[in-house]
Design a binder for these strands. Sequence first.
DNA 1: TCGAGTTAGTATGCTGTTAAAGTGAAGTTC
DNA 2: GAACTTCACTTTAACAGCATACTAACTCGA
Lengths: 326, 326
Amino acid sequence: MIRMKDIAAKLELSQTTVSHVLTGKHAHYRISPATVARVRTMADKLGYRSSALARAFRDRKSYSMALAVEDLTNPFWTGVAIGAEREAEKEGYTLVVANTSGNAERERRTVQLLQERRVDGLIVSPVTVADQALVDLRRDGLPFVQIDRSIKGEDIPCVRTDHVTGSALAVDHLLRRGRREIAFVGGPVEIQTFQLRLAGFRKAMARHGLKPAAVELIEPTSKAAQEAVRGILSRKPRPTAIYTANIWITLGALRAVRDARLSIPGHLEVVGFDDIAEADLLAYPLTTVAQDVEAIGRESFRLLLRVMRGQKVPREVLLPPRLVVR
Amino acid sequence: MIRMKDIAAKLELSQTTVSHVLTGKHAHYRISPATVARVRTMADKLGYRSSALARAFRDRKSYSMALAVEDLTNPFWTGVAIGAEREAEKEGYTLVVANTSGNAERERRTVQLLQERRVDGLIVSPVTVADQALVDLRRDGLPFVQIDRSIKGEDIPCVRTDHVTGSALAVDHLLRRGRREIAFVGGPVEIQTFQLRLAGFRKAMARHGLKPAAVELIEPTSKAAQEAVRGILSRKPRPTAIYTANIWITLGALRAVRDARLSIPGHLEVVGFDDIAEADLLAYPLTTVAQDVEAIGRESFRLLLRVMRGQKVPREVLLPPRLVVR
DNA sequence: TCGAGTTAGTATGCTGTTAAAGTGAAGTTC
DNA sequence: GAACTTCACTTTAACAGCATACTAACTCGA
């Protein structure tokens, strides 16, 4: 790899002069136009690539941020990543996307790795509400914000969709359509996302004097949901609607409906959290509570920047969900 | 941030000794067990995180690789990224995933950025068959391999699905089902992926003495495909099958079929390249040519490692496609 | 007391940035 | 015209955190 030193040697200049030119500070240091041209030409000719590594080392600032999320096969997280990446690029930062696999131990390792990489800031989606790795992180002083959910008892800003309102949208929609026996299928409440969606569901039901027809908390996978919904569908009386709190659960529910040879909306209705790009092509009309995923990514990056600059930040940024009726 | 120096100062040891301990070389340098313990305890207590930045700088090796792909909303690329990431982690590397947006200029910038970050190697999916950025990259000596497609005239290894065979699978399937009037809808041939899929399609048809019912090359988006397929469906006679060369095109085609109120397989059949996780829930039975996306990621990472180690590498690694009949 | 075996320290370099200093020529002052 | 200043341009030196080759000091038994 070509270094500044090499360019300097070739031109019999000091490395400093080369630096002045290549960082565009030649005006400030009054480097002669001839020298500027010579340096630039030589840099080009040798294919010089400045070392962001060396610069980061010197500046004690890597100009990179990290986004640690749990499942990049989930379009929610992909969308968030794209939103954050776009904003990062605009601000001159590199975004490193890392995987926690929704696993506390892996999250701990990932966060440590990112600290070692000296990322300037971190956007992270806590695996559980009691996430020691993040409490430690705070102690270490690495600026970070949370996304989609937050840990308990620490005052760390969080960007997420208003899950409670999202659930209300789902429930109100179903009630408007005359469905009053509504079952909830969600993930574990250790994950705040599900906790809030469930709370919102209960609250919306209660507001109408209704009780959930069923509440199932399972692993948020299609398979587990398929199983759980199979159970729900075999109940007598059968619920007239199911509210599924996550995309995988929604897909599992639809599979269970198919397996039971029931029809939507004839036998029951399904409303799911998270929109599905191919929803219009599904065999079943599926209403969803859609989140503005890229906005979540974008806003969390912006929030992180504010945190890093020591500006005042809100404790929570809630983005409104949107009901997509089909 | 705590440095080795800080630990050394606290313990009244030299930085060297601390380094010896923390890099696990205390046996080799015969550091006394007591000292080892003291150093470790202090490192722990202070929350020391070694600077991968400083190490990378010193070693002139960042232990990071990059994967540059064009569209992370496409499950193909997400899958590839996950496969590569998994393998990278196994080998002690960090994988940086970068976006080229399928745009030559952005690709050039991305590659340059990655070079500046001093990634040790690069896995890249060339935007076009004549990709100057990659020819330059080769000159710079950065080890890299190609994924899914390759540039012309350079002898750079490439990992991809056997697109030609994939097309043959699709055609043979349709012919077995008695469909002989098959239309092809694909992306621009500047992208080798589509070029090969089209070539495979033509070859398979020719082998049976058939001519394509239509060949449409469009932007690989659902919208463009919907439009193009609308045209195809209004032809007289109407093709009895459509082979769509990419996931977005497939979805667009299905939308066009829906808009035309045609049925599958009654009026026509659709076979698409790339599998869709929710395919079983779609309103139309959809047969697909599935790729082992994670294997592509995994194998390309392995190949890259071999390149970096100067081992002999095949020019091409072809992974077999698999027909998923629905 | 010599040397082997232990244990720890000194010095150096990796690349880029920047404050501070230097150089040589032209201009100014007494 | 000698001494000083100014200006335009460039260099010197130090530093960021870690790894390691080399060096040093100390202990102990022969």
